[in-house]
């Protein structure tokens, strides 16, 4: 690479600055972990303890005693949202990328504008309809609402990705007598594995993180996700910050896993979602 011709001694101090900047940005995350291990009596110590030297796992015990049902719900909602999002957006991406349907551009535009609608407004409309249908406080109801966070993004990613599948491959499939559906299922979809992974990861993360739909559509029932678990914690026991922060740490696990296992896809997802043609 032409830009890295500078001697290494000159670039190492930049690594130093980079480390400091990253440390500053991530300091709140460290603080969350630190507080999750801090004893109740040290919580208001002055000056605050910068390291959990005399720490406790009380907070985590509280999580496993009280928050497991919430975590289970979030997990199921996340998986359901992934399934629904991929099932809806992959075929749409294929059609928009390869079949040039009349009105396809208009549909893409509608999907883009759909993303601009604030969640709180969607929530109010969903609430009114769910109340009539009797599906407030149900898993399918929450999954359907959460999927609206991911479907437009999914279509965008699949369209961008499937445009890159060579036309010759599709031609060959047609020559071999494969129909549209078969071409999609056995040629295009297997080649789009990366897009499936990217869309699934983000759909799971967004559903897992959702608070707006959870608090409006699932706030009163037996299926409450972890975001509501934390929210109730903050409301109920204002003093037990180690338990609140321990729950927050546990709720951050999917984000961390995603970043470690799939960093490549994360960057792809962010930039593909932003830098459209």
């Amino acid at each position: 690479m032409t830009t890295t011709t500078a001697p290494t001694r000159r670039t190492w101090w930049k690594t130093g600055i980079g480390l400091v900047l990253t440390g500053l940005m991530l300091f709140p995350v460290y603080w969350m972990i630190n507080v999750s291990f801090t004893r109740d009596r040290d919580m208001r110590a002055s000056p605050p303890h910068l390291f959990p030297v005399d720490g406790t796992v009380e907070g985590y015990r509280a999580v496993f005693d009280q928050q497991l049902p919430y975590l289970g719900t979030s997990f199921l909602v996340g998986l359901g949202t992934v399934a629904l999002t991929v099932a809806l957006s992959a075929p749409a991406g294929y059609a928009l990328a390869k079949l040039r349907p009349p009105g396809g551009r208009a549909l893409s535009f509608l999907l883009l504008t759909a993303q601009m609608i604030p969640g709180i407004i969607m929530a109010m409309g969903f609430y009114a309809s769910y109340l009539e249908l009797g599906i407030l406080n149900t898993l399918p109801g929450l999954i359907l609402a959460d999927s609206t966070l991911a479907v437009p993004f999914g279509v965008l990613i699949f369209t961008a990705f499937m445009s890159g599948v060579p036309d010759e491959l599709l031609q060959a499939a047609v020559v071999d007598g494969a129909g549209r559906l078969r071409t999609f299922w056995s040629v295009v979809l297997p080649l789009s594995r990366n897009a499936v992974v990217t869309v699934s990861l983000f759909a799971f993360l967004w559903a897992w993180s959702d608070f707006v739909f959870a608090s409006t559509l699932a706030g009163g029932g037996g299926h409450q996700p972890i975001t509501l678990g934390i929210y109730r914690y903050i409301g109920n026991n204002n003093q037990q910050w180690n338990a609140i922060m321990a729950t927050a740490v546990v709720a951050s696990v999917p984000a961390a896993v995603l970043l470690v296992l799939a960093q490549r896809y994360v960057s792809t997802g962010i930039t593909a979602g932003a830098v459209k043609d």
């Binding site: 690479m1 830009t3 890295t4 290494t8 670039t11 190492w12 930049k14 690594t15 980079g18 480390l19 900047l21 990253t22 940005m25 991530l26 709140p28 995350v29 603080w31 969350m32 993360l205 897992w208 993180s209 608070f211 975001t227 934390i230 929210y231 903050i234 609140i244 922060m245 927050a248 709720a251 951050s252 984000a255 961390a256 995603l258 970043l259 960093q263 994360v266 960057s267």
Partner: peptide
Amino acid sequence: HFPLSRTLRAVILVPWLLPLIVSAST
């Protein structure tokens, strides 16, 4: 380009990926 720049750039993404309730309570 400096040593570790890729890794640091990846790690710095954490705040954006965290659930909002986590960032808000922190």
